[in-house]
Every structure is written in C-alpha cells, then in structure tokens.
Amino acid sequence: MMLRVQDLHFTYNSHPLLAGISFALERGQLLAILGPNGVGKTTLLKCINAIHKPTRGAVLVEERNILSLSATTIARDLAYVSQKNEASRLTVFDAVLMGRTPHIRWRMGTKDLNMTEAVLRSLGLATMGMRYVDSLSGGELQKVCIARALVQEPSLLLLDEPTSALDLKNQVEIMGLIRRVIDEHHIAAVMTMHDLNMALRHADQSIFLKNGVIHAAAAPDEVTPAMIEQVYGLPVRIHHLDGQPVVLPKT
C-alpha cells in the first residue's frame, strides 16, 4: 500500500475534530475527501503530511510511519499543494525550482534546473518561465503550484481544494492535469473538494467525513443520494448524463 491511515485522531483545542479515520490508497489512485465546511478535511490532509501531529493513530507512507521521518524526508516523498498560495515577486521558473528545496543541501544544481524545465514543459508552462508569479492569474498560479509539487518528485500528492478558486475551464484543465500526472508518474493523490460533481467525475474513490469519522467510502458509481443527504443535510438526486453521475439538489 502506498498510503495507509490507521485510526487517526486529531483534537483541536480539546475539541475532537477527527475521531478514528482509517483508509488506504494504492499508487495510481486519486482519492477525494468530501464533507461539509469545518468537518476537518484540510486537517486530515495536514495530518497525512505531518504538518499537524495526530493525537492518536498512524499515517504510513509505503509502510513507514510519517511521524518518525524528518520534515525534509517527508517533503521528498509527499508534496502538499495548499489552498492558499501567496504570489511573491519570483519568476515562475524560480517558484517551481523552489520545489527542489528538500533535495538540496546548499545550492541548486544542474539536475534541479533541468528537472524544473522538464516539468514546466510537460505542463505547458515553458513559455511563462520568466514571468513574475505575482502577475499570473489564479489558474496559472495553481498550475505553477502543481508544477512545484511535481519537481519535489513525490510519490504522494496532497491537494487542498485544487479547483475552488478557478473558473470552469481552469477547473477542468487542472483536474485533467492532476489525473495525467497520477497516471504518467504512477503516484497517488489525495484531494479535498467541495464540488461533488467534479469529485465523482475524476476521483477513483471518495470518502465522506461527518462528525470526525468516515461516514461513507464509495467509488463514484456507488455514491447514493441518501449518503449525500446524510452528510450534507440536503436532499439531492443523482442523474446520469452521458454515463457521468451528476448531483442535483432537490428543490
């Protein structure tokens, strides 16, 4: 197993936020973490990356306990794309090159520069390498952040709402990009998401969080209206359009 989360608990200010989360993920798979606002989706993602320390339970990445690893070792294996990304006055090339930070000791070498160029090219960003990050649009910035995560050479990609701030075209592009990266590099990815339709369309597996536990785990075609209603407290219908499940709120 690529990733194994075992009985994970997380308490925030003596308020139990996650209370016994367990799941596992293989290489090549994309897992969506779903659930209402404030349920602890981002917290779960940060626990996997050891940005937060779980109060109980374990996160195993290729059977190694994440808490026994140093921050740099974790960063060589797990890449985290935050929901909030500040745009500083760096060129796109430097912003992506930054992803090599966990791999270097003093300075960037030829290998780091070459890998940055290769990733930029494969994501279609090569032409904007010399632009400053603070002049990019939201969609472009998100692509740069994914590129930065890729030069980390991770085996697991963690994405916090990768499409939440993007327009429809960019949403589709970014999700396509994530899928392509998972398949090409044979890595696994976990993402949190609010858009159920986007999740059902692209994820291999979805887990629904409610009251700190996994209320349901399902492949896209196993998700039922009852499941969604219980988690979000909103009655919905699921229609199939061109073979794709589409969630619609009942009005």
């Binding site: 990356n49 140093s70 921050a71 890449a79 985290y80 930054m98 930070t101 966990p102 270097i104 952040c145």
Partner: peptide
C-alpha cells in the same frame, strides 16, 4: 544567505513552506 530558499518558501505561504520541509 544560507537560508535564502527557506525565506523564498515562506514568501509563498507558511503552509507551502511546511510542505517543502521548511521548519
């Protein structure tokens, strides 16, 4: 100067920096 990349990473946001292994 030796911390240049760490400062660059913090510029990109605390969480991004943590994801890059910066303490």
């Amino acid at each position: 100067w030796a911390n240049s990349w760490n400062y660059n990473a913090i510029d990109a946001g605390d969480e991004t920096a943590r994801g890059l292994g910066v303490r």
